[in-house]
Amino acid sequence: MRGLTIGRPPGEARRSVQAASTAVAVFVALGVSLSGCGAGGTGARDEGPAHADAVGGAAAVSSSSPTASPSRGPDRVDAVRLVKDDPEVSAEVKRELKPCVGDQYAVDVSYGQLTGGSAEDVLVNVLTCGDAVGVGTYVYREEGDAYQNVFKAEEPPVYAEIDRGDLVVTKQVYEKDDPVSGPSSDNVITYRWAAGRFTEEYRTHNDYSNAVGAAPTEVPEPEPDS
C-alpha cells in the first residue's frame, strides 16, 4: 500500500501504490520477507526501504537550519524502537506496531536527504500486518546522538517516500464498498524542508478507473430476419 509518487502522471504510475501494497500483503501471509512484513513503496527513492538493526533513540522535535556540507552515509537505526519510544507517535499506531510473523514487523525504512542536515534523514512507514495498510509515516532528523521527529502523518491509509530531496506523501481515498486492494482515488502531497520545518509545495488528486477488471457488457445478438 505503498504509496507512495508525487509529481508523476495519473494512470498506471498511480496504480503502483496499490499494486505494491497487494504484493506486500502476500509476503506477510507467507512470512518470507527478509526486511519485515511491511509493504514496499513506489516511485523514485534516494535509497530504497530497508529494515535496520542499529539502535537509535527518539527525542523532542527541534528546528535547525540545513547545512551546506554533504550528508554522510546513513547509520542504520532500529526503526521499531525509534517509533515505540517516540512520544509524538499516537497510541493507536503503537498498538498496530507488533510482530507479524516471528519477530518481523510491518515497517518500511528509507534513508535520504530531506532536511539538509549533515546526516541522511530516516523515513519510517508503519503498516498493519493483515492487509499492509499504512497507518503512520514519520521523518526523523539526526541531532547529535539522537533523532528528532520532524514530520508525522497518521491518517490511514498513508504512505510516504523520498523523491529527489522532497517528501512525497500519498493518502489513498476509499469510497463506500471499495475493497482494501481497490481504492477509488488518492491525494499525493509534496513537502519540502524550509526554515526548520516541512511545508506543502503542491498536491495532486488522482481518480482511479473502475473499468479495470469489470465484467464485459453482453451485446444482444440481432434477431434473424423472418
Rank of each mutant, 00 (worst) to 15 (best):
V219L: 08
L34Y: 13
S62Y: 06
G73D: 11
G11I: 05
L114W: 04
V28Y: 15
K94F: 11
G57F: 13
L30Y: 13
A58W: 03
G48N: 12
G41R: 04
Y105G: 04
G31N: 07
P99N: 03
A29N: 10
A29R: 13
G117V: 10
R15G: 03
S185F: 11
A119V: 06
I189R: 10
P222H: 01
Q148N: 10
R15A: 06
G116M: 09
N210F: 15
A19V: 11
A160E: 01
P157Y: 10
P87F: 09
G36Q: 05
P66K: 02
D178T: 06
E120H: 00
T128R: 08
G38Y: 05
P224V: 05
S184V: 15
N187W: 11
A29M: 11
E161N: 14
T42I: 11
Y202I: 08
A39L: 12
D121C: 09
K171P: 01
E155I: 02
D207G: 11
P224I: 03
A39N: 04
E88T: 14
V124D: 02
A13H: 12
T128A: 09
V24D: 12
K94W: 08
D186Y: 14
D186H: 12
R72I: 07
A29Y: 12
D145A: 12
L123R: 03
S62G: 14
G134V: 03
V219Q: 07
Y202S: 11
S69N: 13
T115A: 08
F151E: 02
K152V: 06
R197S: 15
Y191E: 07
V77W: 03
A39D: 05
D86S: 04
V169F: 02
D178P: 11
G31K: 06
L4C: 13
A106T: 02
V55I: 05
L82G: 02
V61H: 00
E200Y: 01
A23R: 00
A215T: 15
E12V: 08
L167K: 02
P216S: 10
D53W: 11
E12I: 12
P9V: 15
A215Y: 13
V28H: 14
P183W: 07
L97Y: 08
D75P: 00
R8E: 14
V158C: 03
P156Q: 04
G144V: 10
G7C: 04
V158M: 06
R203V: 08
Y147R: 01
I162P: 01
S21H: 11
V168P: 06
V107P: 03
V55R: 09
A211D: 13
Y202F: 14
R45D: 01
L30E: 08
L30R: 11
E155H: 09
R14I: 11
L167C: 04
V139C: 01
D46V: 05
S226M: 05
E88F: 06
L123E: 03
G41A: 08
V124Y: 02
M1R: 09
P87W: 06
V55M: 00
V168R: 05
Y111K: 01
V109N: 03
V55S: 06
R15C: 00
H205G: 11
E161K: 10
S209E: 09
K94V: 08
C129V: 06
M1I: 09
S110I: 03
G41Q: 06
D75W: 00
E200T: 07
A132D: 06
I6M: 14
D85Y: 00
G196F: 13
H205C: 00
P220V: 05
G112P: 09
S63L: 12
V83D: 01
